[in-house]
């Protein structure tokens, strides 16, 4: 199992390496994800969340709150904000409710799914913040250079084929000293489901096919930020364990979030037998004493700034005028 998952990661790294040689805006030929399928899945997520619009998804809400908490650590305000795909409604809701919204006066909400954007538009009743809605793709961001102060992407960027390219476009859309905040799902996400799917498929079909998408690792996130050209990069990781009654509820939840499989090379046939076997294996391997099954969601939070002369940076190598030996002489005796 581990060998299989590491194989997928290796593939992903190889793709990432191939992409690094291409220019920033050229789209890579490798299509890991079917973006059109993702759009339809997000349409479905919009309908599903519309049915339960009175109750907010706890996972998406806590991730977006955690992400937007970072705004309160900043002294400056962000008059113009851009909110990209993923968990759209919680972010838009939080950003359009002063006073704890980082001073956002103008909010642009972008998602690839029209129904998602419309649902978000219908749900927004806040007039404190000027909000615009727009259907757009993170890989082809239709935002002019240096026009926004803040880009927030909550749980959306892990579905992009060209993650560095999407981040570079976000950086270009930012004004100098603008803030980029993103949350993506990390490689530990749904490890239980990954194991259960692999075992069930091995048992019932005698082979495996990718049921879960390759995800970025924590160590990649910092590299991504640096490669996209952000300054003062910051990465931190949080793990959420959500408990479900059974694996079927987990799949329902994934559908409602629009986080189901969208690999372009995926096997489109899922036999009922295999699905039930997956649920049974999940239950027998991971169920807890109270009868619930846990699912891990690893969220990687990324923070980066567009470069600006006012930001602190390291001094040039060799520009120091004081030797470390002198410092030790001065302070070493005290300790």
């Amino acid at each position: 199992m581990r060998a299989v998952s590491s194989f997928w990661r290796k593939q992903q790294q190889a793709w990432a390496f191939g992409r690094s040689r291409s220019a920033a805006f050229s789209t890579s030929n490798v299509k890991i994800f079917d973006r059109q399928l993702k759009r339809t899945q997000r349409d479905r997520a919009a309908w599903l969340s519309h049915e339960h619009s009175h109750e907010h998804d706890p996972l998406l809400t806590s991730v977006s709150q955690n992400l937007l908490d970072r705004l309160q650590d900043c002294k400056r305000t962000f008059p113009a904000a851009l909110c990209l795909g993923g968990s759209l409604q919680p972010v838009a809701r939080a950003l359009s409710s002063p006073p704890h919204n980082g001073g956002v006066e103008k909010l642009i909400v972008v998602d690839a799914s029209y129904d998602m954007v419309r649902a978000c538009k219908e749900a927004s009743h806040h007039h404190a913040v000027e909000t615009h809605f727009l259907v757009g793709d993170e890989e082809f961001l239709p935002i002019k250079e240096s026009s926004v102060d803040l880009v927030v992407s909550c749980l959306g960027l892990h579905w992009t084929n060209d993650l560095p390219g999407a981040m570079i476009q976000s950086r270009l859309a930012l004004k100098p000293d603008g803030l980029f905040l993103a949350a993506i799902l990390g490689g530990e996400t749904l490890k239980e489901l990954r194991i259960a799917c692999t075992l069930a498929q091995m048992e019932r079909e005698g082979g495996i096919s990718p049921r879960l998408s390759p995800l970025a690792q924590v160590r990649d996130a910092g590299n991504l930020l640096t490669r996209a050209g952000f300054t003062l990069p910051g990465v931190d990781v949080d793990e959420y364990i959500v408990k479900y009654e059974s694996a079927l509820e987990l799949i329902e939840h994934l559908r409602a979030m629009g986080e189901t499989n969208a690999l372009s090379q995926m096997n489109h046939i899922l036999k009922r037998d295999t699905a039930l076997a997956t649920a049974a294996i999940y239950d027998s391997m991971f169920s807890e004493e109270d009868g619930t099954v846990p699912a891990t969601f690893q969220v990687i939070y990324m923070t980066g700034w567009r470069e600006h002369p006012s930001q602190q940076k390291a001094k040039r190598r060799g520009s120091a005028t004081i030797s470390f030996k002198d410092i030790q002489k001065q302070f070493g005796s005290q300790s």
Binding site: K106, I108, H132, L134, L141, P142, K144, V148
Partner: peptide
Amino acid sequence: KAGKTLCDILVCPLSKQPL
């Protein structure tokens, strides 16, 4: 009507030229 700010900010997603 659709919002002046939006007009200022939007560009073509492919060519990044004004719309």
